[in-house]
Design a protein around this nucleic acid. Structure first.
Length: 419
RNA sequence: CGGGGCGUAGCGCAGUUUGGUUUAGCGCGCUUGCUUUGGGAGCAAGAGGUCGGAGGUUCAAAUCCUCUCGCCCCGACCA
C-alpha cells in the first residue's frame, strides 16, 4: 500500500479528550475516529489489525471444532422476556421499537438467540455437542464508556456458545475453549493471566477471565512470578506479601485488561427457555450450556497498552497491519525513487504486505509517523542504498538496527516476522 | 445516576470576568507558486466560522439570563 494513497490520518497533537495511551495513540495513528460517546469509526489501518485478530480467533476456534455463524444484531423482546433478562438487564440494553411498535433490542450478547435456534433445530443427544461462534458487533449502553475502544458502547466481540448432554462433556469443551483463548492471546504476542471470576448477569457456575497485563487496566490481579497462578485482587483473601499458594514463590500485583471471559452456564437458559433434547434413555433434558466471550476491539487496545512506549505503538508482528514499513527519504531524487519503486513491486510480488511511504514530504514526518504507527520493521531507502546498496532497518521486535543488502530484504522480513 | 469540567475554522486554543476598536483572532493543518530535502522546512499569496442549538434582555451579545443538546473526567457495572 502506498501511503500517499492511503486513508490514514495521523495527527501530531494529542487529542484533548483522550487520556490513556491506547486511546491517544489509536486516534493519533489514524486507527479510529469517534462518532459519539463510546462509538467509533474504524479506519483502514485499524481495521486491518482487527481482521488479523479475527483470523487468529477463527483459526483457533475452528481448530477445536467450533463453527462460525452470524446472528442478527437486532433481537425481539420476547426471547429476552422468556429468560427474564428483558427487565434484569436494565438500561444497559439498548431497546427500540420497529414501525409496528414491536419491542426489540440491540444484542449485547446472544444467549437467548442461540438457545432459540438450538431448541428449534436440535432434539437429540446424538446431535451434541455443538459449539457455535460468531464475530460481530455488540451494543451495550455502558454507564460510562471510556478509553476509546477499550470500553466502547459498540464493540466487536467473538462470542461462542456450546451445548452438551452432560456436564462432563461441557467440561471438555470448556477446557478446549480455554486452551484456544490462551493460544489466541499467545499468537497475538501478548502477556496474560487467567483468573477465576464472578459471573454477573450472564449467570452460571464456573467461569474464568483472560487478563492482558497492562498498566492502564481497570482490573487488579495478583500473579505468581513462577507458575501460572493468578487471582483478582478483590476476589481472594490474599496480599502481595503472601506467597503463591501453589509453589510458594513471590506474587506480583498488576493492573490488567479483561479480554476474554468463559462461563459454564449449565441449564440457566435452556431451562428458562424450555430448550430440551432427548437423551439415550428417551428422557427430556435441558441442554447444558457454555458461553465464551472474547473482545476483539478490546484486544486491539490492550495490545497498544501493553506494547507501546513513549509515543510509539509497537504491534506484535502477528497482528501488525503490515509486515514492513518502507520509507523513501527523497522522492525527488529520481534514482532513489526508482530503486524504492522497484523494491516495492518486488516485495508485493513476493506477498509481503508492505506499507510504502512514497509521500513527498520531509523525512522527519515520515520517521515520526512510522514510529507512531507501530509496524515493527521499518526500512529506510535513502543515501545508504545509493552508496552501499543497503537498507537501514529499525527492528522494533528485537529493538535493534540493521543494515541489510537490498537483495536480502525479502529473507530478512520473512525471517524476522516469522516468530 | 451522583460529583466536576468543556463546547469559538479540520485539530489545539485565546477572547467571555467588566456587552461596543473584532470586519471574531492565534498556532498547526489545508490550497497555489517558488525555494528546500536524513528526525514534524522557508517565503509569498489564499480558502475556511450562522462562536453547539433555541429563546430572551439590550441601541448593541461569542460575552448577560433561561432552557436544551453534545462531549470529557472521577465513582458503582462489563468483553
Amino acid at each position: 500500500m502506498r501511503l500517499s494513497k492511503y486513508f490514514l490520518p495521523t495527527t501530531r497533537k494529542v487529542p484533548s479528550d483522550a487520556k490513556v495511551p491506547s486511546h491517544i495513540l489509536s486516534i493519533r495513528a489514524g486507527l479510529i475516529r469517534q462518532v459519539s460517546r463510546g462509538v467509533y469509526n474504524i479506519l483502514p489501518f485499524g481495521y486491518r489489525i482487527i481482521k488479523r485478530i479475527e483470523e487468529i480467533i477463527r483459526d483457533e476456534m475452528d481448530k477445536i471444532g467450533a463453527q462460525e455463524i452470524l446472528m442478527p444484531i437486532i433481537q425481539p423482546a420476547e426471547l429476552w422476556q422468556e429468560t427474564g433478562r428483558w427487565s434484569e438487564y436494565g438500561l444497559e440494553l439498548m431497546r427500540l421499537e420497529d414501525r409496528l411498535g414491536r419491542e426489540m433490542c440491540l444484542g449485547p450478547t446472544h444467549e437467548e438467540l442461540i438457545t432459540e435456534l438450538i431448541r428449534k433445530e436440535v432434539h437429540s443427544y446424538k446431535q451434541l455437542p455443538i459449539n457455535l461462534y460468531q464475530i460481530q458487533v455488540k451494543f451495550r449502553d455502558e454507564i460510562r464508556p471510556r478509553f476509546g475502544l477499550l470500553r466502547g458502547r459498540e464493540f466487536i466481540m467473538k462470542d461462542a456458545y456450546s451445548f452438551h448432554a452432560t456436564w462432563k462433556d461441557l467440561d471438555k469443551t470448556y477446557e478446549d475453549v480455554k486452551k484456544a483463548y490462551s493460544n489466541i492471546i499467545e499468537k497475538c504476542g501478548l502477556d496474560y493471566r487467567i483468573v477465576e471470576a464472578e459471573s454477573g448477569i450472564i449467570g452460571g457456575k464456573v467461569n474464568h477471565e483472560f487478563m492482558i497485563l497492562a498498566e492502564t487496566g481497570e482490573e487488579e490481579i495478583f500473579y505468581c512470578t513462577n507458575c501460572d497462578f493468578a487471582v483478582k485482587k478483590d476476589l481472594a483473601p490474599i496480599k502481595v506479601e503472601d506467597k503463591c499458594p501453589n509453589c510458594q514463590s513471590d506474587l506480583i500485583k498488576s493492573k490488567a485488561i479483561e479480554v476474554g471471559h468463559t462461563f459454564q452456564l449449565g441449564t440457566k437458559y435452556s431451562e428458562s427457555m424450555k430448550a430440551y433434547f432427548l437423551d439415550k434413555e428417551g428422557n427430556q433434558k435441558p441442554f447444558i450450556m457454555g458461553c465464551y466471550g472474547f473482545g476483539v476491539t478490546r484486544l486491539l487496545s490492550a495490545a497498544i497498552e501493553q506494547k507501546h512506549y513513549d509515543n510509539q505503538i509497537t504491534w506484535p508482528i502477528q497482528i501488525s497491519p503490515f509486515k514492513f514499513h518502507m520509507i523513501l527519504i527523497n522522492p525527488h531524487k529520481e534514482k532513489l525513487k526508482q530503486i524504492a519503486e522497484e523494491l516495492y513491486q518486488y516485495l508485493l510480488r513476493n506477498n509481503i504486505e508492505v506499507l510504502y511511504d512514497d509521500r513527498e514530504i520531509s523525512a522527519g514526518i515520515k520517521f515520526n509517523d512510522a514510529d507512531l504507527m507501530g509496524i515493527p520493521i521499518i526500512g529506510v531507502v535513502g543515501n545508504e542504498i545509493l552508496k552501499t546498496n543497503k537498507i537501514e532497518i529499525k527492528n522494533k521486535i528485537k529493538s535493534k538496527k540493521d543494515l541489510i543488502l537490498k537483495e536480502d530484504i525479502l529473507d530478512y522480513i520473512t525471517t524476522e516476522s516469522n516468530i
